[in-house]
Design a protein around this nucleic acid. Structure first.
Lengths: 314, 314
DNA sequence: GTAAAGTGTGAAACGCATTTTAGGTCAAGC
DNA sequence: GCTTGACCTAAAATGCGTTTCACACTTTAC
């Protein structure tokens, strides 16, 4: 491989001057520039990205930690991040985690080893304390409410839209609902917001046998529906944590020929549009773009809260 | 930042020995190992990833060129690639292209500059000749039939499933269909396979006013349906290039209260499942994983052709 | 006329880990 | 007693571009 010193030697100039030509920086005579450019073409030379990274101490890689890669939540978030990165010099590296602490730590250690300039956690399994410890090695951006002042985040506030949705149910004369969640209350800020707002509106938490966790996919929706039907709980409303899940619930009720309860989705996916299910849009695209801007320090905010939007479909 | 020489100095050993300890390679006395490890902990040292990359001439980054990031085709392909990369030391870098030749060249140049160890093109706008020129700088894997022997690829053969689908239509007494395509015949191997197989089965190409290109999304499906309805073409079958597109077509026909023609989707997405539309599964997940294995030379095949599967839904 | 500012270039240091080459020591084998 | 192989370690070279410092020559400027 030909390197900058080869160019220097062949052109009769020094590596420093070649570097100046390559980067259009500093003083270079037009004669030198021309001669060096000719040699560069002649030897078909490109400067090594790795060497550049080393001497600048940066990789221009932004790591994005994703627990699932097929789930619409993460797909949309990632879409927003990619949009934000478009036509910048930064690259987006995908880091699948499955909420595995070992993997998450591995990625944090890679940040420490300068494999990334910053990390975006679309969600996380490890504690926020651990995350906070690693902020000294580079920006770490969360996509949920960090509830503390030593972590950067962009997130959707959710509460007001949840409130709207629950009130909408209430106005229909329904005073309780089944609730599906992706992760349990204890570890998920989102689950907390869901159940806390529920309690605020309905005056009590949803019944234990009507609260379902680890619900992620269409199939999970069907599974949950099966359970509810077999329990004969006769719920009047099911508040799901995703449109695809709502679609699965609907499918199972239809299949069994049972009257479908009022259904609410989240994420404003194609599926809720197709099935005419009301949903809540959390602006994942915007969250992604903004997270990217925090990661690259284009913005310096500590936290950026956004509003969710309840979309009524009758 | 503390580096390997700091560790060497403080521990009284050389950088070479520290390196051996770090990588568990070669002979190191247990005393030396222990002492060095203590100093590493003491100084909170991690070796720089970038310096490692430089001295090994590799980055362990695999670039994945994606024309669209929201489209299910690319999402599934990417999912497969990520799956393949899981628990390897390689990282997946997302490279959005929008079929823009300038961007695609930029990514190829980055391969040349060793920013990536390999590139996977899920689709491409530039010519295969140009792609072939860059293979000397690292593996380049395509996800469609390259139809030449100087490019590596994993792809779905499509024809037999197309044949099955078209024959299924024919058996129903239907002798022509409208066809939607994402890109025109001239530049897309997929469009070629679709129309060539169509001609083979039906004896003629679909009519010009019933061949639609640049159809990508649900909304595009609605747009196409509108056109067909306004043309009063009374098509008996619409062969779409994606389930979401089929969903859009159905939505528009329903909206206008017009009898829906026989509809066929592709990609086996949730939408076709929800709407009970027959579809064709092209195994994008497998294609992705295999493309990754070619990129990292875990497999050395030149091309890997897979079979697509026609999924009947009545 | 002389100081100050601008232009042009190179040697060497810097960022950092890996690997090669080479030179030791010590025990086993004949 | 001498050779051989195993074991251990270090110095230096390697990968490659950027940046700093220093030096020198021209132009302006007063």
């Amino acid at each position: 491989m030909t390197n900058i010193h080869d160019i220097a030697r062949k052109s009769g100039y020094s590596a420093a001057t070649v570097s100046r030509v390559l980067n259009n920086r500093g003083y270079v005579s037009s004669i030198a520039r021309a001669k060096i450019k000719i040699i560069i073409d002649e030897l078909d030379y490109v400067p090594s990205n790795i060497a550049r990274d080393l001497s600048q101490g940066k990789t221009f890689n932004i790591g994005v930690v994703l627990p699932h890669t097929k789930h619409p939540y993460f797909t949309q978030l990632l879409g927003g991040i990619i949009l934000g990165a478009f036509s910048t010099k930064y690259r987006i590296v995908i880091l699948p985690s499955e909420y595995d602490a070992t993997l998450e730590i591995k990625y944090l250690e890679q940040l420490r080893a300068k494999a990334f300039d910053a990390l975006i956690f679309t969600s996380h399994g490890i504690s926020r304390d651990t995350l906070a410890e690693y902020t000294k090695y580079g920006p770490i951006i969360l996509c949920e409410d960090p509830k503390r002042t030593d972590l950067q985040a962009v997130f959707s506030k959710r509460e007001s839209a949840y409130r709207e949705a629950f009130n909408w149910i209430k106005v229909k004369g329904i005073n309780s609902a089944a609730v599906t969640l992706s992760r349990p209350y204890e570890i998920s800020a989102t689950a907390q917001k869901t159940l806390d707002t529920y309690k605020e509106i309905f005056g009590a938490s949803p019944k234990n046998n009507l609260t379902f966790t680890d619900v992620v996919s269409y199939e999970d929706g069907m599974r949950v529906a099966k359970k509810m039907i077999s329990q004969k709980s006769n719920v009047q409303c099911i508040f799901t944590n995703g449109d695809d899940i709502a679609a699965g619930v609907k499918e199972e009720y239809n299949k069994q020929g049972i009257q479908l309860p009022l259904l609410i989705g989240q994420e404003n996916q194609l599926s809720s549009q197709l099935l005419n299910i009301p949903t809540i849009d959390h602006n994942f695209n915007d969250i992604g773009s903004l997270a990217f801007e925090l990661a690259t320090k284009k913005r310096a905010d500590l936290v950026i809260p956004l509003e969710s939007k309840f979309i009524i479909r009758e």
